[in-house]
Simulated assay, not measured.
Amino acid sequence: MPLRFTLRQLEYFVAVGEAGSIAKAAEQVNVSPPSISASIAQLETEFGVQLFVRKHSHGLSLTAGGRIFLKEAARLLNDADALHDVAGDFAEKVRGPLAVGCLLTFAQIVLPALRMRFERAYPDVRVRQFERNQGQLLEMLQRGEIDLALTYDLELSQDMTC
């Protein structure tokens, strides 16, 4: 029997799994919380597993199965992004994933308008945003978890440029 889920549902699941809450994930992927909740419920129904433990007013925690599912969903999304890259090479179009990190202190001020303009100009680029402190952003850059960081140019190592 064919599976009936979308990459978008997996993207929402991964965002919630990483953020620990539907509200935070909704901000990151720019989608309403009810849409994310519905996507997660559909995934749980499709696969017949509980992915999260819901904690009243304390967000969500991944179940043991949810942690495994998260790892595989992230891998699948990366594989799908690789297909976009291959297609982009042939089409000579700007497309694929773009992971953007931004300082917590100004993310809500800077990112919404910037992201909206960028996504309008490049609709085939899938933007994921991460809001962290300076140290975390620099570590994420060094580990290759994000493609770029919007931050102050303080405490940058020599291998990073502005």
Rank of each mutant, 00 (worst) to 15 (best):
L76C: 08
Y152M: 14
A149L: 04
Y122P: 00
R143A: 12
E139Y: 07
K93L: 07
A91N: 12
L60P: 02
L77Q: 03
F13I: 04
T63R: 04
Y122D: 01
E27H: 11
K24W: 04
I36A: 05
R54T: 12
A149E: 01
R117K: 14
A107F: 05
P34W: 07
L141R: 00
D89L: 13
T161W: 08
T6L: 03
Q134P: 03
K93Q: 10
Q136W: 04
L150C: 06
S57C: 13
V31F: 05
H84S: 13
V16W: 00
R120S: 15
E44D: 07
K71D: 07
K71Y: 07
D124A: 14
M116N: 13
Q142N: 08
V94L: 09
C162I: 14
F5I: 07
A107W: 01
R54S: 12
A121P: 03
L10G: 00
G135D: 08
A38K: 15
V86P: 03
M160H: 10
N30R: 15
D153M: 05
D81P: 05
R120M: 08
Y122S: 02
S157F: 06
L150P: 01
P123G: 06
A80K: 06
I146G: 00
L104Q: 13
T151E: 03
A121K: 11
A149W: 01
A74T: 09
S39I: 01
Q129I: 09
A73E: 00
Y152G: 15
L156C: 04
V29M: 05
A26S: 13
R120E: 14
K93M: 08
N78C: 05
I146W: 00
M160N: 09
I68S: 13
T105F: 07
T105K: 12
A87T: 11
F52M: 02
H84R: 15
L70Y: 04
Q9Y: 02
R67I: 08
E131C: 10
L138W: 00
D81M: 12
L141Y: 02
R95Q: 14
E131S: 13
N133C: 10
E119Q: 15
P123K: 03
Q42K: 15
L137G: 00
P2H: 12
K55N: 09
S57Y: 12
E139V: 09
E139H: 11
G101E: 01
R54W: 06
L43S: 02
L77A: 04
S39R: 00
D81A: 15
S57L: 14
